[in-house]
């Protein structure tokens, strides 16, 4: 422990120089911290409640029921075309989708309150455009039943149909940390 300490008879100028260096390092750390991008996180949902089942149609009128995806990890994303962070994160959801095994994993993007035309017009502008199902929650009843209060909100449902993670606000879903977190969940369910 003693070896960790610098010489005790250092002159005042050396001490001041060290303190100045410490200040510079501290300032650098603080400046970097302030400018750093926000953490890409999924929050563990306490108690892992059962996700309320739903049946919603996609833009072509085909019905999708959440319980039909049992046995897979399902990422459920609530969004709207007029919501800036929703618009921003959708391409990263597609990149996530392309990076995962579709036998173990599904993505359902649920639009709140809009019609097929508005959604189609918007998704056509995205690069990459979503290839996962985009469903219509026209009266936002499903979102309310999932206790959603802001969009975008994303839930991750495990193989047993329980909500394990939630993310409120936009994310970069192709962030390696998020991909690792989701892939780890696939392994747990095996």
């Amino acid at each position: 422990m003693k070896a960790c300490f610098p010489a005790s008879d250092a002159p005042l100028t050396t001490v001041l120089a060290r303190l100045l260096l410490a200040c510079l390092i501290a300032f650098t750390l603080l400046a970097n911290g302030a400018a750093a991008s926000p953490p890409q996180t999924l929050t563990r949902v306490a108690g892992m409640p059962l996700a309320k089942d739903f049946s919603l149609k996609n833009m072509d009128g085909k019905s999708y029921r959440l319980s039909d995806f049992r046995g897979k990890i399902v990422l459920v994303n609530f969004w709207a075309t007029w919501c800036p962070p929703c618009r921003e994160e959708l391409p990263s959801l597609e990149r996530l989708w392309q990076s995962l095994n579709h036998k173990q994993f599904a993505i359902l993007a649920i639009n709140l309150g809009q019609g097929p035309n508005a959604i189609f017009e918007f998704t056509g502008t995205l690069n990459p455009a979503p290839t996962f199902p985009v469903l219509l929650d026209r009266n936002s009843a499903v979102f309310k039943s999932w206790s959603g209060i802001a969009i975008p909100t994303t839930f991750v449902v495990n193989q047993e149909g329980r909500i394990v993670y939630r993310a409120v606000g936009g994310r970069r879903f192709d962030d390696p940390r998020l991909i690792r977190q989701i892939k780890a969940l696939v392994k747990v369910g095996r």
Partner: peptide, 20 residues
Amino acid sequence: IAFRWSQFPTKQRFALGDWN
């Protein structure tokens, strides 16, 4: 419905990394 989701919610909890 559009109005509801476009407004900042009156009450909200933000876990680490959450935002609105």
